Deep mutational scan, measured.
Amino acid sequence: MTYKLILNGKTLKGETTTEAVDAATAEKIFKQYANDNGVDGEWTYDDATKTFTVTE
């Protein structure tokens, strides 16, 4: 399945997608991606749209 991440960081904003077997796997990938890019904030997930959002 395709999952989407919306980044609302102070210095980085944008979107990315990943292919993952489930939401938990996608979350791990996205949290590593956000960490690698210096984004740390409040996480939400919308199962209907398979979208994670992180807001600093």
Rank of each mutant, 00 (worst) to 15 (best):
M1P: 08
Y33W: 08
N8S: 15
G41F: 03
G9Q: 05
K28Y: 14
L5N: 00
G38Y: 08
T18R: 04
L7N: 02
K10N: 15
D46H: 10
L12Y: 13
T18I: 12
E15A: 07
G38I: 04
A26M: 01
T11A: 08
T53R: 05
L12S: 08
E27T: 04
D40F: 07
Y33I: 07
E42F: 11
G41L: 03
T55E: 08
T17Q: 12
A20S: 08
A23W: 07
D47H: 06
K31I: 13
T49S: 10
E27A: 11
D46F: 04
F52M: 02
K13R: 12
Y33E: 02
N37P: 01
A48I: 11
A20E: 04
K4P: 00
K13T: 10
T49K: 11
T49V: 09
M1V: 06
K13G: 07
A24H: 07
Q32D: 09
D40S: 09
T53G: 03
G41D: 02
E15Q: 06
I29S: 06
K28W: 13
E27W: 15
I6E: 04
G9A: 09
G14W: 15
E27L: 14
T17K: 09
K10P: 11
Y33L: 06
D47W: 10
T51Y: 03
E56R: 03
K31L: 07
D47A: 15
F52K: 00
T17V: 11
T2L: 09
V54Y: 03
K10G: 11
T53Q: 09
T49M: 05
Q32G: 07
V54S: 02
V21I: 15
E56F: 06
T25H: 13
W43R: 00
E27H: 13
T2W: 12
E15W: 09
D46Q: 05
Q32S: 07
T17M: 11
Y3N: 00
T51P: 00
L12I: 13
L5Y: 02
K4L: 10
T44D: 11
E56G: 04
L5G: 01
T49N: 08
T17G: 04
V39W: 10
I6R: 05
G38V: 04
M1F: 14
D22R: 03
D36P: 01
T25P: 02
T55L: 07
E19A: 12
D47F: 07
Q32L: 12
L7E: 02
E42I: 14
A48P: 11
A20T: 13
A20Q: 06
G9L: 14
T49Q: 06
E42A: 14
Y33G: 01
G14P: 05
W43F: 05
D40K: 05
T25E: 12
K13H: 05
A26L: 01
E42R: 10
T49F: 09
V39F: 08
A23Q: 11
L5S: 00
E56D: 12
T18W: 08
A48W: 12
D46W: 04
E19V: 14
K28G: 13
K10I: 08
D40G: 09
L5I: 04
L7W: 10
F52H: 02
A26D: 00
A23E: 10
G38N: 15
N8H: 09
K10T: 15
